[in-house]
Design a protein around this nucleic acid. Sequence first.
DNA 1: TGACAAACCTCGATGTCCGAGGTATTATGT
DNA 2: ACATAATACCTCGGACATCGAGGTTTGTCA
Lengths: 112, 112
Amino acid sequence: MNFDKSLLSGSTRLLVLSVLERKDEYGWGIIQQLKERSDDTFDMREGTLYPVLHSLESDGMISSYEQDASAGRTRKYYHITDKGQRELARQKEQWEAFSGGVNRVIGQGAFA
Amino acid sequence: MNFDKSLLSGSTRLLVLSVLERKDEYGWGIIQQLKERSDDTFDMREGTLYPVLHSLESDGMISSYEQDASAGRTRKYYHITDKGQRELARQKEQWEAFSGGVNRVIGQGAFA
DNA sequence: TGACAAACCTCGATGTCCGAGGTATTATGT
DNA sequence: ACATAATACCTCGGACATCGAGGTTTGTCA
């Protein structure tokens, strides 16, 4: 399923931080996890993810380290920082408020 | 509460059509309704609404007519068309899928 | 007369997403 | 041996959405 790409807008940071809250993960893996955890609803593009990862890192929300995978391929793992945890908590609150608001508005249809 | 404005992205059409599903409404009134119906969560700006209204109209999702208010001030009312109803249904589905996906992702935190 | 609210509008700055392109390594199939 | 696909990283530019700031008109109230 593909949405209006703009629906995703603003929630990418929330989504990425949520994945990293669970455990350290590398870019490619984050994309897989999002797909999996959302039951194939999300299919984040690399062109979206990598810039977001870099901006989260430069904001101090996550940190990174390199690590060789089984076959000698190098992966860049990301780890959520304390600051990132606080940011995640804030973004979750915003999401609750926002989605709650949308649900109240659309729930009051023609027959409400 | 003000969000990341970008969270709103992509959902403005859904929100506007939802208001019009109930009854014909004019621009200023739509803003009031959104505020009211969402328990003050949403505060859509005029600079956002008017361009959206014009684009919905040029896409045939809504139609407009002028009508004088009590005091002789003219209001431009918008009415949702059949096409707009179908669009609204589609956008509601997308919203369900999208918000469901986000909830699944953020619900599986560090202790899941 | 002045100030404010209702009601409409446009323009430009900013920020987000992603398609398209690039690089390199390893695995798979023929 | 060779081509293709998958893994894994990256950047750039175009497209699009939001909204702050600005503008206009009419009516109300002191």
